[in-house]
Each structure stands twice: as structure tokens, then as C-alpha cells.
Design a protein around this nucleic acid. Structure first.
Lengths: 202, 202
DNA sequence: TCGCACCAACCGACCGCCCGGTATGTTTGG
DNA sequence: CCAAACATACCGGGCGGTCGGTTGGTGCGA
């Protein structure tokens, strides 16, 4: 018989183009403001193809989220389970996040702009995955607090949410054409995150 | 003299109810997902009333932004122009921001969710006001850097955007029913912002 | 003190467009 | 020869927006 399916995500050239087009359009104009006609036109397919691969416009959005979250969670998981003290692993995770941000800039934009629109039965799965990601992050913070590397007078949930907020919003103001590369921005944000704006009293 | 047995609302009150209803609905469901019918139903007016006060659904959204931005800018302006060193004024400004956040929680939610939708000629005015607000903030950061209160190895624009991102995203995860009050959250975020997560080496 | 003209404020039935989605036909790789 | 992978024509609905009509308050001349 046929070999086992290699990818959990269904493949197909047309499908890829649809996802790519939808990601760009959702990011640029927002989910609601993007029509299915725009998507199929940009992907150079027809509505038949689109509704062959996706049962609805919302499932298309959800699948973008799933792919993004799955990859990010996987990478964070690997780093989180690695060796070294918690604060070092956290630093690693953030650096890694910035290093791979260019590849998913559009998907991140979609996420930041339209994540609140996911509803129905799709919502639970996406939300669960999102919480899993956040928990991986937060566990690192809490571990760092226990070992004394991080302050514990600020709740780990505040630390985590604040920092992730800063990251997810980057697309709103950052331009790669500016004075900073994305990697340099990452360095500065990590520095800010770790030591704050106040000049360290020596 | 016959009093008005029918308590018809005074003039202009309908407008306020429309804005209030739209703010809540835009915040809860998003701008695009909210219909004009929902708005007028929630505000207990008719479409005629709504289109008497606003020329379009988008102008209604824009007016929410304008009111929010005008007030926030005004308050920041007052604090920024006040006495004291820059870092103290910045602290004051942030504290003030959190103190008045409850009053505008819904409008802030709308802003965070749908600000990217403002377009056309409305866009320039809103964007200009938004940049004015950010500049007031950023000037304080830069002044603090010059006086040595703040580190200058991180660009002021990075500092400003990162912190404002953290604030604007609060609505996504914070619940007043949780372990923290909004004021306490403000304290923790300011502390985090000033000194970072790293335990200060003593 | 009226009568009357006027107008902002508001009503609500209605419109045309375009959206997401579907039904059915056609190609194509294995 | 049969699904899978598309294409095409089409639909009902609901959307933002419109428009002629209706109020209640107000100023004003006689």
C-alpha cells in the first residue's frame, strides 16, 4: 500500500498558495476586511479550489494560527527542555524567537491583529495551544524566580504577558529598513527586559 | 401646564448612547464584526439617528479614537510639562495612565483591536494625534537618557514602543477579578519596566 | 398671547451591492 | 475508471447606507 503520510498538514501546491495569499492579505487588511475573492485572485486559483481545501474562511484563518503556533511551540519546547539554568534558557528562547521572526512576520501580524476573531469549536484548540506556548514561557520565568535569578516581587504572569505583548506588537512599529536589524532589536529588547531602563547604580 | 409624560430623551443624549454602545460592541466583537443594526439596537435608537450624527460607520469608529486620544494626550501633556526630573515625570505619567485606565477600558480595547482599520482621510488625523502622544512619551525617555537617569544603549523608540505595547495589550489577559488590582498591576509593570526581571546584584 | 415658519433631531421602510458559501460539471494522475 | 483536485455559475442573505417624512422646540411679528 501507500507509504504513510509524511506531513500531518495536508499538502498541495494550490493549497500552499492559498495559505500564503490569505496570510498576506489577512495581515495587511485584516481578516474581516479580506474577501474570499481577493484571496483566490491573489493565489491565482478559484473558489472551488479554496473550498476544496478549507471548509470555511474561518478554518483558513485557524489553520494559519495552528501552523504558526505549532512551530513556535515546538521550538520553545526544545529549548525549554534543554540544559542550563532557567535564565539562560529564557534568554536563548527569546533570541531564537527573534532569529526566526522574519520567516513568520506575516503570520505573526495576522495573529496579533485577528486572534480575537477565532470562535466556535476552532477556538478551543487554538486557545489551548496558545496557552501551552505561554505556559512554557511562564514556567521558565517561575523557575528563574525559584532559583533566585529573577525577582519574585512581580508575578510571573505579569512578566510573561508583558514581554510577549511587547514582542507581538513589534510589527506595528518596527521597520527592517530602520537603524536596527531585527536581531539588534531583539538584543535591545532582551536587555531592556532583563535589566530595565533605569541606569544600574554601581 | 402639561409636563412631558413621555420621557423623551434630551437632545444629544442619543449621540452619547450610540458612542457608548458602539464602543462596547466594537471592543467585544471587533469593528468589522459589529453591524450598524447591533449598534442602534443596543443604543435604543434608529439608523436615522445614527446616520444623523455620524456620516458613516467608520467615522463613528474614528470619533471613539479621537476622544480617547485627546484625553490621554491632554493628561500626558500636563504631566510632561510639569516640574521635576524626567524619570519622576515618566513614573507619574505611567501611574496616572493606570489610574485612569478603568474609565476607558472599553475604548482602549477598541483601539488595540481595530486601530489598523482606520483609513482614508480620517487616518491622517488619528495617526498624527497618536504620534503626538507617543512623542510626548518618548521625549521623556530621551530626556531621562540625557540626564543619566536612564540607560542610553537602548534606543528611546524601542523603550517607548515596548512599554506602550505592554500597556495596550493589558486588556487581552488581565482580569480585575484576578489576584491583582489594576493599580497593583501598574506598580508591577512600572517596576519591571524600570529595573527588569533580573534580580539586582547587591 | 398667539399663530406660524423653520429646523435640528429623529424615524424606519427600503435599496443595491457584494459577501461567504454551494451545486454541479470537468480535468487528471494512478 | 475512479477519486482527488480543481473550475464556473450561481444564490440567499445581510450588510452599510439612503431618503422622504414626522416630530417637538424656538424665535418672531402682529
Amino acid at each position: 500500500m501507500t507509504e504513510q503520510d509524511r506531513a500531518r498538514v495536508p499538502r498541495g501546491e494550490a493549497r500552499d498558495r492559498i495559505v500564503a495569499a490569505a496570510t498576506e492579505l489577512f495581515g495587511r487588511y485584516g481578516y474581516e476586511a479580506t474577501t474570499t475573492r481577493q484571496i483566490v485572485e491573489a493565489a491565482q486559483v478559484t473558489k472551488g479550489a479554496m473550498y476544496h481545501w478549507f471548509s470555511s474562511k474561518e478554518e483558513l484563518l485557524t489553520s494559519i494560527y495552528r501552523e504558526l503556533l505549532a512551530e513556535q511551540t515546538g521550538r520553545l519546547q526544545a529549548i525549554s527542555a534543554g540544559p542550563g539554568p532557567a535564565d539562560v534558557r529564557l534568554h536563548l528562547a527569546v533570541t531564537d524567537l527573534f532569529a526566526h521572526m522574519d520567516d513568520h512576520a506575516e503570520a505573526l501580524t495576522v495573529w496579533a491583529r485577528s486572534m480575537h476573531l477565532v470562535a466556535g469549536e476552532h477556538a478551543s484548540a487554538v486557545r489551548a495551544e496558545r496557552r501551552r506556548y505561554q505556559h512554557l514561557f511562564q514556567d521558565l520565568v517561575e523557575e528563574g524566580q525559584k532559583t533566585g535569578a529573577f525577582r519574585d516581587d512581580v508575578l510571573a504572569t505579569v512578566v510573561t504577558n508583558t514581554f510577549l505583548s511587547g514582542i507581538v506588537q513589534i510589527y506595528r512599529w518596527f521597520s527592517p529598513d530602520g537603524p536596527l536589524t531585527r536581531r539588534e532589536l531583539g538584543e535591545q529588547m532582551v536587555a531592556l527586559f532583563l535589566d530595565g531602563v533605569r541606569s544600574s547604580a554601581e
